[in-house]
Design a protein around this nucleic acid. Sequence first.
DNA 1: TTGAATTTTCAAAAAATATTGAAAATTAAA
DNA 2: TTTAATTTTCAATATTTTTTGAAAATTCAA
Lengths: 168, 168
Amino acid sequence: MNLTVSKQKFIDTWGALGSEWGINKSVAQVQALLLVSDDPLSTDTIMEALTISRGNANMSLRQLLDYGIIYKKVIAGDRKEYFVAEKDIWKWALKIALMRKQKEIDPALSVLTELEAETKKDKSAEGKALHQTIHDIQTFTDQLSTLVERVATSTRGELLLKLLKLIA
Amino acid sequence: MNLTVSKQKFIDTWGALGSEWGINKSVAQVQALLLVSDDPLSTDTIMEALTISRGNANMSLRQLLDYGIIYKKVIAGDRKEYFVAEKDIWKWALKIALMRKQKEIDPALSVLTELEAETKKDKSAEGKALHQTIHDIQTFTDQLSTLVERVATSTRGELLLKLLKLIA
DNA sequence: TTGAATTTTCAAAAAATATTGAAAATTAAA
DNA sequence: TTTAATTTTCAATATTTTTTGAAAATTCAA
């Protein structure tokens, strides 16, 4: 299997995995393409390599820049923008985890916390049961959220390494 | 806020959170409804409570049964099927994690492992760089997969508790 | 400034995903 | 058996999400 075929297979696999976990396929594929590219790529090169439109390429790149997992690279004497991927998997995996926690988990957690408080008062059997259920889920979610936060903000997944060793 | 409103808010929050993480909204809502219901519910009750079709209710229930996070409950003298949710959050959270790992991560991991092996031979600079990138991602994914596996198959998230304490 | 190169925006189209609802299949009481 | 209740299936429909592509905006060299 040659490089081109391997790269394509990697890009496809990464795109499919992203899709299943709520990351846009194009976004995942652009990241994958940059990950397996040694040199910085321009929007045009990316469009051509993945056969996606300019709009799609642009939006995917902006999102990855937003996440902080790719960087702009200026090439002297060229007006085009070029992009490179952060190659340290720990760095970008933790950034994505933290970003999704903040954007998706935290808002849900705040509703759960609110519901936990609101259901506390009810002293009927049904009310107590509801409160218990919401309390359990709120606590669990909160613990997971804290775990992600702590791991992501510790230097270079140092904590995650400890965890993996603990488990191994 | 009364019970009905709290329950509805919980169901909506849970449905939205599920959607963002690749779990069908109806499936998440049916689980949420059963979680906040004290008594077993029939398909008809679920359809009415969530205003979803019979087909949707049926498919969502089958999927939750498949995951092993809800159970059938026979009510004496009634031909209808009734359903109750597993209320132990550790149990069902770990089951979902394990199921998604097996269905989504493991197939991707096997492609990554295959690519890792295939790119090992190439001795060009570009080939070496590609191999390194794929190697890193394969290793990382494999470790995460192992982590989920170990935690999920240990008794009642005992390991996860250790982790949380380690972090706290 | 001007204007060509480049990037961004976003309404419209396409694709993917979820939901419906009614017919078919199954179940079990009479 | 028969038949009514219940569950399952799945083609058709609706909804959501993604992608396109061309116009508008921006950038910057001349």
